[in-house]
């Protein structure tokens, strides 16, 4: 299509731009509404019977137990590198005694929940979207509905519950492993005395540091599982559709984790 000659070019370009911006904005609002409705429906089915406990147990194991190695390794090396980095930085200020505190606070408040959340988004979020997406495109979800079983109850509620319950547990274990990683580097590389390192860790830590991290973890677990379910459930048709759903689940969950991390930090510590 040619632009009519009477319209000056810059003007028509601007109209185009406004048109696109408007359309995109409307799309975003429509999507946001759709996701909100999906979340409300999922929550409703999490709290109303019937409960499919076998499904819940399977998801608890799938999401929790099998994520343990990933989360453990991530937090171990994070704790270790934190100790190393803060040592090389803090010697410039003669502040080596703060290392243990930096490690434990960063791990419990920020890094364990955020990194565990992101790793689980990659592992669990993708798996949920792929599994539910495949069930969508092969009509298994339709089949379930015709058998009088609500897919929100059978597929979505167990995954959302398991994600929300298991991520705090994973992060708690990750906290311990992360601090232990810092301790290993502190004691075996930087030659702190073990007793000193542990006292410094213990003295600075408050229960709020751990609790805030666990609350974040619950929020991130919810985000990962609900976005996995949402994108899988609404997967476009065909194998390509499932691929797109999987990517979208991971990307949107990761971004939401970072946004909510900021919001929750603001709520807890200001």
């Amino acid at each position: 299509m040619h632009t009519p000659q009477t319209t000056p070019k810059p003007f028509s370009l601007m109209l185009d731009f406004l048109h696109n911006t408007g359309a995109t904005t409307l799309d975003v609002f429509a999507k946001a509404g759709e996701i909100t409705l999906f979340i409300l429906r999922a929550l409703w089915h999490c709290i109303t019977p019937p409960f499919f406990l076998t499904q819940l147990r399977r998801q608890l194991i799938d999401i929790g137990y099998y994520s343990l190695p990933v989360v453990g390794l991530t937090t171990l090396f994070t704790g270790m590198v934190l100790a190393l980095q803060s040592y090389t930085g803090f010697t410039r200020f003669n502040a080596e005694s703060a290392i243990a505190g930096v490690v434990v606070l960063s791990v419990t408040r920020e890094l364990a929940p955020v990194l565990a959340g992101l790793m689980v988004a990659g592992r669990v979020g993708a798996a949920i979207a792929a599994e539910i997406g495949t069930m969508r495109v092969t009509e298994q979800i339709d089949a379930m509905t015709t058998l009088s079983v609500n897919p929100f109850k059978y597929l979505i509620a167990p995954r959302v519950l398991a994600g929300t319950l298991m991520l705090p547990l994973l992060v708690l274990i990750g906290d311990i492993i992360g601090v232990f990683g810092g301790y290993l580097v502190g004691v075996y590389r930087l030659e702190f005395s073990p007793a000193n390192y542990l006292t410094q860790t213990w003295d600075i830590l408050e229960s709020m540091d751990i609790i805030s991290g666990l609350v974040k973890a619950a929020a991130f677990g919810f985000i990962v599982s609900i976005f996995g379910c949402y994108h899988g459930f609404n997967s476009p048709r065909g194998a390509q559709g499932v691929g797109a759903a999987t990517t979208n689940a991971v990307v949107s969950a990761s971004i939401m984790i970072l946004i909510f991390n900021y919001i929750l930090t603001q709520v807890f510590f200001s």
């Binding site: 069930m135 092969t138 009509e139 298994q140 339709d142 089949a143 379930m144 509905t145 015709t146 058998l147 009088s148 609500n150």
Partner: peptide, 23 residues
């Protein structure tokens, strides 16, 4: 309502094109 629809489903049986067995 959804609830009534769920009840109605028990009167229907459906054989899907690809089988749609739960894998």
């Amino acid at each position: 309502s959804r609830r009534e629809r769920d009840m109605l489903m028990s009167k229907f049986g459906m054989l899907f094109q690809g089988g749609a067995l739960f894998d």
